[in-house]
Design a binder for these strands. Structure first.
Lengths: 259, 259
DNA sequence: TGTGCATGTCCACAATAACAGACATCGAAA
DNA sequence: TTTCGATGTCTGTTATTGTGGACATGCACA
């Protein structure tokens, strides 16, 4: 019985969801933390977090790392991830393809997919340069910030895209606002050719080349990308695109799980 | 109000525990399954499993794999496992060491640890033979069945060991019964030298060599092993042990997470 | 010595999640 | 055709659990 019925009434979170919030927090933090800190960072009740951390420790999903208190992702996650990797063993072929791309172009090659409603690098091979360019594996990045992002949402309708991509992800790292319809326009154009290239909007010195990897009856379930210094990128545009297209063909024929 | 108070009264399982039961079931099965089948195999109520599978799908922890119904481990597990691997990046050095062992001895080299109260191969490098010997990564095996098992429980007291190792794990694959005290005796002897060698009891043609990797103030947090055909094993015993000891020294100096 | 903050434990209670079981399909076998 | 099993959905009920908050430390600093 509440006067403000539509107000969010401090809903109780489900244990499972909280648990995976904890895991994701640790994953993104990439460093151990104690339950107290986890609770305050993810905005969850301390008592809940203490209980859940206890359960996850018992399961081997988390591990004590310190003398005391601090916990981090546990070995069982490693085993589970391993089983995933083995089942969809596209990773082997994928690494071979990236290896070929990286040696051929001397640029950093990446294999990217969606992770929920974000973009993430799944596999990477750094280029053969004195100063190498690289990204974190698995770190979620707003879709509109990336070249691949234009391709990965190719099969959605306009309204699906607008529902799928969080509103705030159209705010670019430099603070400027990317009009969602402009983004969709770029995505539509990219979908036609299966290629998208631009000067990266997450920094000021790289140029990104993304090519769609089709599969499972969809136009783009993943992308292969090159990340190059801008001048090299401009100079070698055609060569890079050709290399990526060949790589995408190779990757398109192996079994990649659908996003 | 129950007449039989000490009887297990069909306890309701916790969602989190059920969820990880599901994940482990899929991991060990190493193949997709539909919720119905999962429920019957792990002995859980169908309605619960359907709900949990739904939640895990939303989290990206499970993925639909089929046209319909069947699910398997999802990409998020891959990312989580990746973060674990990166944090404890002993895997890199570990692989190098195993590579060295495998080329030097031409036998299959393994890096093993405890997974809960079981033994599991964490990394492996197959030997350079026409017929290679290998194991599944991450598959839990009863501790008493393995050479490494003798070493991995080195720091426990007798009663801790008896509590830790499930009673039924002393039943060997050939049906014979390994006396727990005999096992402990072997373990104590092995702990003194840090070495254990025997003709494998899980098959009839291999000989196993295990050497303890100490760390974190404990005598054995992991093992390095060679799995060889019996005749080769006998012939090269000393050479293999020496190689393993050198490998263990290298591994002991890198940061390995405690079990 | 007192004050404040960070850490961890414990408890009681409402909210709700796990469960049993009914129901609805669908395809294959009889 | 009926029957059966396998699959998935939807309830209502009740045992459980997530939560707020009290309590207990211990440490740093004034």
């Amino acid at each position: 019985m509440d006067v403000m019925a539509d107000q969010a009434v401090a809903k109780r979170a489900r244990g499972l969801d909280r648990a995976f919030e904890i895991l994701d927090y640790l994953r993104l933090r990439r460093e151990p933390a104690n339950p107290n800190e986890i609770a305050s960072q993810i905005g969850a009740p301390r008592s809940s977090v203490y209980e859940l951390v206890g359960l996850l420790l018992r399961q081997g999903i988390l591990e004590h790392v310190d003398g005391e208190g601090r916990v981090y992702l546990g070995r069982k996650l490693f085993f589970l991830g391993n089983a995933y990797e083995e089942h969809y063993d596209f990773t082997r072929e994928c690494d071979r393809v990236l290896e070929g791309l990286a040696t051929e172009t001397r640029e950093t090659a990446q294999f990217c997919m969606l992770d929920g409603n974000k973009y993430a690098v799944v596999r990477m091979r750094e280029g053969a340069r004195p100063f190498r360019i690289s990204s974190d594996i698995g770190r979620p990045v707003p879709i509109p910030w990336t070249a691949s992002g234009r391709l990965l949402i190719a099969d959605m309708s306009d309204s699906e895209i607008l529902d799928f991509v969080p509103r705030e992800d159209f705010r670019l790292p430099d603070g400027s606002w990317l009009d969602p319809m402009a983004f969709i326009g770029e995505a539509r154009a990219a979908a036609r050719t299966g290629v998208f290239t631009f000067d990266s909007i997450v920094d000021s010195f790289t140029r990104c080349f993304a090519v769609a990897v089709p599969g499972m009856g969809r136009r783009c379930i993943a992308t292969v990308c090159l990340v190059a210094p801008r001048d090299d990128g401009v100079r070698n545009h055609d060569r890079y695109i050709d290399a990526l297209k060949a790589a995408a063909v190779r990757l398109g024929s192996i079994g990649i799980p659908k996003p």
